[in-house]
Amino acid sequence: MCLAVPGELVSINEHHDPLWRTGDVSFGGVLRQVSLACVPEAQLGDQLLVHVGMALAVLEP
């Protein structure tokens, strides 16, 4: 269930409402825009666990 894949946060599109905050996550060089609504603490370079376009966790290094 729930194919979730780790990827690196490479850019952030800031938004005053966290609901609309997004970022580009790199999966081996392939980029996908991902919602950061559930990971307000996420910073550039973090490894995120991504499922259906939502980052669900900042992975421990």
Partner: peptide, 13 residues
């Protein structure tokens, strides 16, 4: 399998 193909395949299953 290159990193990008691997990344895209993981992402999309």
């Amino acid at each position: 399998v290159g990193a990008e193909v691997s990344g895209a395949c993981q992402l999309l299953g």
